[in-house]
């Protein structure tokens, strides 16, 4: 599974970057600076999407006491935090030439920053508790409470008067951007998905091995590998 997703991620990444840099035209307002969109939007979408997935599995782990779902949630957090950081970083580098400022305390930016803190809080809390099962439960609670932030991020551009623009792409309306720009962006979104799946599965496997080290099957596996 992991090689398939890794391969798909690389192919889509190359295709997305090609479309983004060589096919998509120059924006009539923003010039070439808009090309940051090809990482900014996928990263921002992934940061929110991964949080929901993480909270979902953490919640399942909390409700049904299934260890694997909790481990999966733990594995998602660093990748989600990374995408949140990238969204904020590329946003700052985009904001400087377009808005004239790296950072502004408006609703969209602030709620995305809170998302980063939620990821960091989740990871720190789990790291601070020695017993992994208790860490899972404590983490699940912070993850579930934090879900409330996701709709706030998403609708922040409608609810408040923000410097950040509204959504250019929505399910119900035709997207307000050129087709090739949209294509490049969507390919990059799929690349991010494939990348996230590959990386998260890989991290999940490591976490399983770490946590289940006392069990017979890990010892068995080890025996096979060393012989």
């Amino acid at each position: 599974m992991i090689p398939i997703f890794s391969f798909a991620a690389i192919v889509l990444l190359v295709a997305g970057l090609y479309v983004g840099f060589f096919v998509a035209p120059t924006d009539f307002q923003q010039g070439e600076a808009y090309r940051i969109i090809f990482i900014h939007v996928p990263a921002a979408w992934m940061s929110m999407f991964l949080y929901v997935v993480m909270a979902f599995w953490a919640g399942i782990g909390l409700a049904f006491n299934t260890r694997l779902s909790s481990m999966f949630a733990t594995a998602i957090a660093p990748t989600g935090a990374m995408f949140t950081f990238i969204a904020l970083w590329t946003g700052a580098l985009w904001g400087k030439p377009m808005w004239g400022t790296w950072w502004v305390w408006d609703a969209r930016l602030t709620s995305e920053l809170i998302l980063l803190f939620l990821y960091i809080g989740f990871m720190s809390l789990q790291a601070a508790i020695d017993d992994p099962r208790r860490a899972d439960k404590a983490g699940a609670i912070i993850a579930l409470v934090g879900v409330v932030n996701i709709p706030i991020i998403y609708f922040s551009v409608q609810w408040w008067n923000t410097l950040h623009q509204g959504a250019s792409v929505s399910v119900t309306q035709a997207p307000a951007m050129a087709t090739t720009m949209l294509m490049g962006m969507l390919i990059m979104v799929f690349a991010s998905w494939m990348y996230s799946i590959a990386v998260i599965l890989k991290r999940t496997r490591v976490i399983i091995l770490e946590r289940e080290s006392h069990t017979a099957w890990v010892a068995e596996l080890q025996r096979k590998e060393t012989v």
Binding site: T26, G31, E32, A33, R35, I36, I39, H40, W89, T90, L93, W94, K96, P97
Partner: peptide
């Protein structure tokens, strides 16, 4: 990048 090289490449 049309003068935006620092911002675009800084992101990438």
């Amino acid at each position: 990048m049309g003068g935006y090289g620092l911002y675009v490449w800084g992101s990438y």
